[in-house]
Design a protein around this nucleic acid. Sequence first.
DNA 1: CTCCTTTGTCTTTTT
DNA 2: GACAAAGGAG
Length: 800
Amino acid sequence: MADYSLLNDMQREAVFQTEGPVLCLAGAGSGKTRMLTHRVAYLLEKGVEPYHIMAITFTNKAAGEMKERVEKLVGPGGDSLWITTFHSSCVRILRRFADRIGYENSFSIYDTDDSKSVMKDVCKRLRIDTKILKERTILSAISSAKDSLIGPEEFRSQSQGDFKLSRIAEAYVEYQKALKENNAMDFDDLIMQTVSLFRQDAEVLDHYQKRFRYIMVDEYQDTNTAQFELIRLLAEGSRNLCVVGDDDQSIYKFRGANIRNILDFEKHYPEAKVIRLEQNYRSTQNILDAANAVIANNRGRKEKSLWTKEEAGALVHFRQFDTAPEEAEFIADEIVHKGRKGGDFGDFAVLYRTNAQSRLLEERFVREGIPYKVVGGVNFYSRREIKDILAYLKTISNARDDLQVRRIINVPKRGIGATTIAKIQDYADAYGLGFYQALEDADRIPGLGKAAAKIAGFTNQITVFRTKLTVMKLSELVGDILDDTGYLSEFDNETDEEIDDRIDNIEELRNKIIAFEESNPDGTLADFLNEVALVAEIDEVDESVPRTLLMTIHSAKGLEFTHVYLAGMEDGLFPSDMTVASEDPMELEEERRLAYVGITRAKKELTITCAKARMIRGETHYNAISRFVREIPTGLLDNRVPGAGRIVSKDEDEPYDDPTERFDMFRRSPYGGNYGSGRNGSGASGGFGSGGRPKAVVRKKSTPDEVKPYLAGGGTGSFERLGISKGMPKPSGTAAGSGSTPGAKPDYGIGDRVAHIKYGEGTVTDLEPGPRDYKVTVDFDEYGTKVMYAAFAKLIRLDD
DNA sequence: CTCCTTTGTCTTTTT
DNA sequence: GACAAAGGAG
């Protein structure tokens, strides 16, 4: 029997309100998982069959934890209780009913790499010049279409008249066809195809509507349109739908998350009961105050403010360093000290905006001997050797997955090269066969010569593996694959240092398979492949090992740590330059929400760090302190810092409260220009002709008329000086390059004064031609040095 | 056909 | 700076 007295009034209300739609606005750390767990327990105690309950979470890890906690309250619920992610639920449904929408139930799931290979092929066939229209661009357009439930045909009819969109539409049609031929779905398909299954097949929909009578959705603010529709369809029968979320923590817009889903919930369900959880059980008051202050700068949010019974706690620590390596050093040093003083290394987490930032930190952590784990970055399952082995397994599992066949047909080397493959493809096309089917006909394909025998060897091997699978355990089969194909022995001849890593990875994969077999005695190969396709890196984190986690803030969503380090809090990095320069203020708001998520991960201590100089993509950037840090009231920050980290000459104990002093502190460091070593050398593009696109030529003249709109939109104080502009003498020679200069040349040169929409005024310190546009370095009066593309920067020259 | 070198692109964030 | 793709030599 679960104990509901441990819940607060609001939580209890949400738990007991089991009938009808419920919108639970749950701030960070307000115990929503506890609420959801108890809600499931309560339903079960009330006599609701586990079979009728569905709880959807964001990650497998969250699902696992919730399941565990429910079982702790009411005992094992068995497999009939669905606590899973969107993607896993859909796979489960599709594995049963995909044949009703024209797929085989053994369909493969394609990851981003797979999708890209397919798209590459599609572009080749459609003669799309991928220099102009990149596979990536097309894929992301398709992805967001799918997130909004727009199929290929609809996309096509919507894109008429727009050349670029029409091309994408064609690619979308072909891509989708190719996936179907391979009997494969990409990530977005999993949701979209499930929705279309429900829409097309009343019987299936009815089945699931009757089944899932109580539906709960966690992290509702990050659902996309397709997911919303999925849930809406399922809940239509019972209308017992409880969604839990926090609009302030919506950070997945780039992945199609539609914040309107949560903001408009009451419109869709007018009878919805709205419950707010505002008491925070995680952080100290100081940390909460900092978070509240930052998020308060966003408009268009549901007003709420978190409070806690906890005490104020320590001030938020803040340190600025000269360089990023020093920042990393500081963080590692501090964790070592605190950790050795009897702390648990598992109590620390270092969070950052971009994965690339992990490298410096990792180096430092290795040197200090801190037990750590970098979460994210390159996914385990996307490493080459792992993908190779999985390709074998997928080929065995799904006979139509030609993409995988092509991947492994010459891995390990069998002497089957590009020409042979082209001949096979021609044959397949001519006879309307799949690639693998054509392989089986190898002896009938003209002109293959000796290659035919090699191909026969390959197909025989696959056939043997398929047979073996019926009598062997999966783990044994993998062993055979590695031996029989010579995959492992091929490593023997190599002396590369990486070989050891790769062998380790393979070993780790085999361990994962064995673990899978132990926990799923009846699991099939397809089950294993599902699991593999849908794991996030965070799912794999084993918390029983005490180690410090390094990850992006995105990955940290839903987690909490006693000590949190927010690293790289610099304008240009977080918020990123792209966001700052964006026309759409919502993008900056999303970044701010991300900052909010980062801050609220901390339970006891929050340390914010940044560096004045940092290498990004091989170039040194000089960044000012993040505006999000500036939004934290001074009184909440400690700034006492001896030595290198000192950012303001102030007495030890006194936090600055003098606005002018504060302003000073955020002035940029006294660095000159950009000394990056970009290798954008010569040549590049013979033809920049690339027509149509707005290479957004820098304005030739800046008339007052053009300046005005910026003034209106911008709002940084310094803009008022735009009109007065001083202008400096122009250097006689313009920047670097000669000859092959693409793009229009800006009308400013080194030394000129210019104005930027967001950064205000500054001086051009460098200007060099890049492959497609001029790269201009500007030393802004207020924001420090920025390197940007001229077309993008839309700088306005301030004339004398 | 394979290996090695050179060149180009990139990055926010991920199920 | 890191990695994939393309190009060239054996």
